[in-house]
Simulated scan of single mutants.
Amino acid sequence: MTFALAAPAAEPRARFRDLTAAEWIKIRSLRSMPLAYGTTALAVLAFNLGGAYDTYTYWNARSAADRAQFVGDGIPLQHAFNPNAALVMMLALGAIGAFAIVSEYSTGTIRTTFAAVPARGAVLAAKAAVLGALTTVFGLLLAAASFFGTQAILGARGAGVGLDHPGALRILLASALLAPVSALTGFALGALVRQTATTMIATVTVLLFLPIALTDGRYWSALLGHSLPYQAWLRLVEPHYVAPQFGWTEAGAWTVFAVWALVSAAVAVVCVRRRDQ
């Protein structure tokens, strides 16, 4: 009499929520992450609150006409999140996003991950989802702290504004969403390049050098510049936008934010499917 051996049961396919939970645990376990986010927050707040405090300190040195026009000219909103703070946040979040994927390639742990979950695209999609959600929350908290902190300082001189002031909510949201856009950009570059130093150079080039090199003086230069996250942020946070020769719309700037975030996540997912470990 012969007995047939039962075939081993196939392991259930990993669900996307399981993958995101695993990525969240992985990020939480990295000791460098709290330090990186904390340092970034302190640097950004130092630029924003420091600028507001400088205005507070030298308020009486302004002429009566300047003080009277301070709110009307939109200066409080410019203090809410200044360009220096935005650049620091972009570079820091871009590096954090790149590190989220490059660190696994440099240590070789990505092989273990793909051995456990062969669906590479799903793994990268989960990484992008967790990174995007985490940096969005971080950006919202940092933008809110900057806005309310700067306006409280200016409010001591009667020059602060509230969130209901025209343009205030737009500036807060644009500054907050700059964080996930920058992080996902670094993440996509990390998935493409996979080398730490080269990825960081590419991230700095895309997020910082290109927006500075491209100007609004020529049509094609302006068009390319308007397609970059930093110039989109500048368009959104301008209190009283006066269109130059090659001006563009607020809706166009929001579109740039959305396209960069979505395309960056898609690039990371597609390239990991088409390349070896």
Rank of each mutant, 00 (worst) to 15 (best):
R274L: 15
G160T: 07
P211Y: 09
R157S: 12
Y53D: 05
G190N: 09
A92M: 14
T196R: 11
L142R: 00
R274K: 01
T203R: 01
P211C: 14
K26P: 01
G186W: 05
A14M: 03
G190E: 10
V270Y: 00
M1R: 13
P244Q: 03
P229T: 12
V242N: 02
A43P: 07
A258I: 12
L134Q: 09
A7Q: 13
F246Y: 15
S227V: 13
Q231R: 14
A152D: 07
W233G: 05
V137G: 13
T40V: 12
Y105I: 13
L189Y: 02
W220F: 15
S264K: 02
R111C: 08
V269L: 08
A268D: 05
F187C: 12
T109W: 10
L131N: 06
V263A: 14
A43H: 00
A52H: 10
G252P: 03
P118E: 14
F81G: 05
Q78K: 14
T136M: 11
T136S: 13
T20P: 04
S63P: 04
D66G: 14
T199W: 10
D54I: 11
F246N: 03
A174N: 01
V193Q: 00
A251G: 08
A61I: 08
D164W: 08
T2N: 11
E23S: 02
Y105T: 09
T196S: 14
L234T: 12
A213M: 14
R274A: 15
R157V: 00
P229D: 06
Y105K: 11
A61R: 13
A52T: 05
V204S: 05
V204L: 07
A36R: 01
G74L: 02
T55C: 05
L5A: 15
R170F: 06
V272S: 11
A65G: 02
G38H: 03
A159Q: 06
V270A: 14
G217H: 09
A46P: 01
T20R: 12
W59T: 07
S63Q: 04
G72D: 15
S106F: 07
F114P: 10
Q78T: 11
S221A: 15
A266L: 13
E104R: 00
T57K: 15
P34R: 01
A43D: 02
D216W: 03
D276P: 13
